[in-house]
Design a protein around this nucleic acid. Structure first.
Lengths: 107, 107
DNA sequence: AACACGTGCAACACTTTATTTGCAGGTCAA
DNA sequence: TTGACCTGCAAATAAAGTGTTGCACGTGTT
């Protein structure tokens, strides 16, 4: 089940510009699309779209402040994705120990 | 720097079929494209391409065994991606404590 | 009210991705 | 050698993603 629900998250993380936006938000705090755009080599509208994608993946959260919309990082989703990776790695480890055990006790 | 190098990894993880292939490999051990294809609702060739993408992202590794090509999970890359997520979350935590400290000591 | 600024949306072009079918070539077994 | 099975590659198509420009609409400010 987590198999499909984390896919949009990883897909969102799979773009360099979006990674850049995430690190900017993580280090600089909440910011708007317009204020972030100068830091990237793309237009304000493109940044806006990336932030929407990150938002629908649950990685950032929009908050209205006056006439601006400030986006901030949502840690919970980062943790959830990291947990998925960890479970995958654990499954692989279990597989390896099963092979090792089978090799040591042929019958 | 890791910003761009992990992007292909996350992009590879961002597809449900590829996630499914990874979990199959992690739990069932090394397998070929042909043997995996019946478990997915796509053709053998499509599975092959997904495995190539996972392979070029470093998430799986091909190994020739007779007339088959067996793919197996590469734990190192899983760990590397998990580390990237952890660093991002840590950066966000540092940001939060900086804000908190500033609030407690206005000047 | 008038102006500036930030957002939201639509149209468009371009590139990439996903997937299929078909076929050629290699490898193993009878 | 013949047949079965697996891999590898090409062409075709449909869909999605990335980016741009232009413009309309709120929301503050003067």
């Amino acid at each position: 089940m987590t198999t499909t629900s984390t896919a949009p998250v990883f897909a969102a993380l799979g773009d360099p510009h979006r990674q850049q936006l995430l690190t900017l938000l993580a280090r600089g705090g909440a910011a708007s699309a317009s204020s972030l755009a100068p830091s990237l080599p793309v237009s304000r509208q493109a940044v806006d779209r990336h932030l929407r994608i990150l938002s629908s993946a649950g990685l950032v959260e929009p908050r209205r402040s006056g006439r601006e919309v400030l986006y901030s990082v949502r840690r919970a989703e980062l943790d959830r994705s990291a947990a998925w990776l960890r479970d995958l790695a654990d499954g692989w480890d279990r597989r390896l120990s099963a092979i090792k055990a089978a090799a040591e006790a042929p019958e």
